[in-house]
């Protein structure tokens, strides 16, 4: 299988690598950029564990080829913290027990990071709708929802739903 030289920009750093065109972005990030925080849970685009942010959109990195990401801005879980300081969302996951085994966590963090960076305020229905993109098997989602909700409140992005 022939390979192609590409340059990927991940978390603001450039990676000059040689990849097979068929290699997924997830495998490229993991195997060739050394960024193993992005996890593969199904490789079918269902579970969302491999979610990363590409040009400000959440993306299943198992459904995109590495070469398709050239020239784009890729963000992974490794880029969330500022040095020793966790991002407010990461801190909220820690404070509210939003993770157990930790395998789905990077995908949820990237999905929710995207959610919290949007201009639009978030209510309960939108929160559930967006987070239902990803699967978690440990938490029953309770504390993931809580962690994102509390982070949104802290960032002034939360609105209470209109009473039914």
């Amino acid at each position: 299988m022939t390979t192609q030289r590409i340059t990927l920009t991940v978390n603001g750093m450039t990676h000059a690598i040689e990849v097979e065109p068929r290699r997924t972005l997830a495998d490229t990030l993991r195997d060739q950029c050394g960024l193993t925080g992005t996890h593969l849970g199904c490789e079918h685009g269902v579970c969302g564990a491999c979610t990363v942010i590409v040009d400000n959109q959440p993306v299943r990195s198992c459904l995109m080829f590495g070469i398709q990401a050239e020239g784009r801005s890729i963000r992974t879980v490794e880029g969330l913290a500022d040095g020793a300081t966790l991002s407010p969302l990461q801190q909220s996951f820690w404070d509210h027990h939003g993770l157990q085994c930790g395998f789905c966590t990077p995908g949820f963090l990237m999905l929710a990071t995207w959610l919290l960076e949007r201009e639009t305020p978030i209510d309960e229905a939108e929160l559930r709708h967006v987070l239902s993109s990803n699967l978690c098997r440990c938490t029953g989602y309770q504390n993931i929802l809580k962690a994102v909700r509390e982070a949104a409140k802290g960032l002034g992005k939360w609105v209470e739903s209109a009473p039914a």
Partner: peptide, 22 residues
């Protein structure tokens, strides 16, 4: 008590079998 396990997992610095297998 918030878990001692969490900071590494939250940073994507956990070490799962597939990470070690590369």
């Amino acid at each position: 008590l918030p878990r001692l396990e969490d900071p590494a997992l939250l940073r994507g610095e956990g070490s799962y079998t597939a990470d070690i297998a590369i």
